[in-house]
């Protein structure tokens, strides 16, 4: 148990380091950029409406104060952190005066739901199929499954999502291709709403699952086909241990350990995929919010989405890492 706590503590320090580094990198990017956020916001504002010179000057002053761009770097950096820790990144420009953080928190459940379910499905199906394909190497069905998923795997998310959109939007319109839920359903914990949400999430989730399957399949098949040749598997077979026990407890469990490590490593990449998927399917999550915010020149919201996503990805990796020792007793012992 003490070993586990030590392990968890080390991982926790790493989590803090990742968030610290990511957020600092964001600060450096925004600080070093040749573009002044104040002037940018001002440009956006005055492009849409006629403002008197006095109003512009007043707005500039207010914005400078809000972003704190007139202070020395270190003060700005400290201010940035203190505002971040208080969860206050200023008002959003697109949906003035809603705080940017509130927009992010509103969009987060959509992205989390989509990301978690599709990652879970991908991981389970890909590893199960890959494990079986590694053990039963002559199965035609599993071979065909492998070829299809491997063919899809290297293709960029966008292309797969787009092909799905064309197939289900134009050729065979059976599923909704846009939005998070049907227009005529009132949000709430009611059955029609939940059904509508599920129905709308099918296509975005499908595109994420299709792209993700191949990687797990290939990895697991390679791992299992190595493990199958080990002596203990042959011994178990000769000793008459049941087939499903061998496959499940002896082979796949052992092969799963590196796969869980890999799961922690791909979460960041899956997040980029969700952004694109949300954009293609017009899903009301953080990805769509990010794209809208960039297009609207909404400084606070862009920063808020970036911070939250870095922290969320780091947290997800941390949780997967904590689950790791439960699967592999060797990590606990170290």
């Amino acid at each position: 148990m003490q070993g586990y706590l030590w392990f968890a503590a080390k991982r926790f320090i790493q989590l803090l380091a990742v968030i610290f580094f990511g957020v600092s990198a964001m600060f450096v990017v925004t600080y070093l950029s040749p573009i002044d956020p104040v002037e940018q916001v001002l440009g956006r504002l005055s492009a849409r409406s006629n403002l008197s010179p006095e109003a512009i000057a007043a707005t500039r002053l207010a914005l400078t104060e809000m972003f704190g761009t007139d202070q020395p770097v270190l003060t700005q950096y400290v201010n940035f952190w203190s505002r971040l820790l208080r969860g206050d990144l200023g008002a959003s420009l697109m949906a003035f005066p809603t705080p940017a953080m509130e927009l992010v928190l509103r969009a987060m459940p959509w992205t989390l739901g989509l990301l978690l379910t599709s990652t879970a499905i991908t991981f389970v199906v890909g590893n199960l199929a890959g494990g079986l394909a590694g053990y039963f190497q002559n199965s035609r069905l599993l071979k065909a499954f492998g070829i299809v998923t491997m063919g899809l795997q290297p293709i960029p998310y966008y292309i797969v999502a787009f092909i799905i959109l064309i197939v289900f939007g134009y050729l065979w319109p059976v599923l909704p291709i846009s939005g998070g839920f049907a227009m005529d359903v009132r949000p709430g914990w009611t059955l029609p709403f939940i059904l509508s949400v599920l129905q709308h999430s099918l296509l975005p989730a499908l595109s994420l699952v299709l792209v993700g399957l191949g990687g797990w399949f290939i990895g697991m098949r390679a791992l299992v086909s190595n493990i199958v040749t080990e002596d203990y598997v042959t011994y178990a077979e000769l000793a008459g241990v049941r087939r499903d026990t061998i496959v499940g407890d002896y082979v796949i469990r052992n092969a799963l350990v590196p796969q869980v490590t890999a799961l922690a490593m791909v979460i960041g990449g899956v997040f980029s995929g969700t952004v694109i998927t949300e954009q293609v399917f017009n899903y009301p999550g953080m990805g769509s919010l990010l794209v809208d915010a960039v297009n609207a020149g909404d400084y606070s919201t862009v920063l808020a989405v970036c911070t939250i996503s870095i922290a969320a990805v780091a947290l997800a990796i941390f949780i997967v890492d904590l689950l790791h020792p439960l699967l592999d007793p060797r990590v606990r012992a170290e």
Partner: peptide, 23 residues
């Protein structure tokens, strides 16, 4: 340690941020 930090930082938001400030 540095390596693990870089693995964990999602690059997409950072790239978007770069685009946002550099245009």
């Amino acid at each position: 340690f540095i390596n693990d930090i870089f693995v964990a930082v999602p690059i997409f938001p950072i790239l978007v941020l770069f685009y946002f400030v550099l245009r």
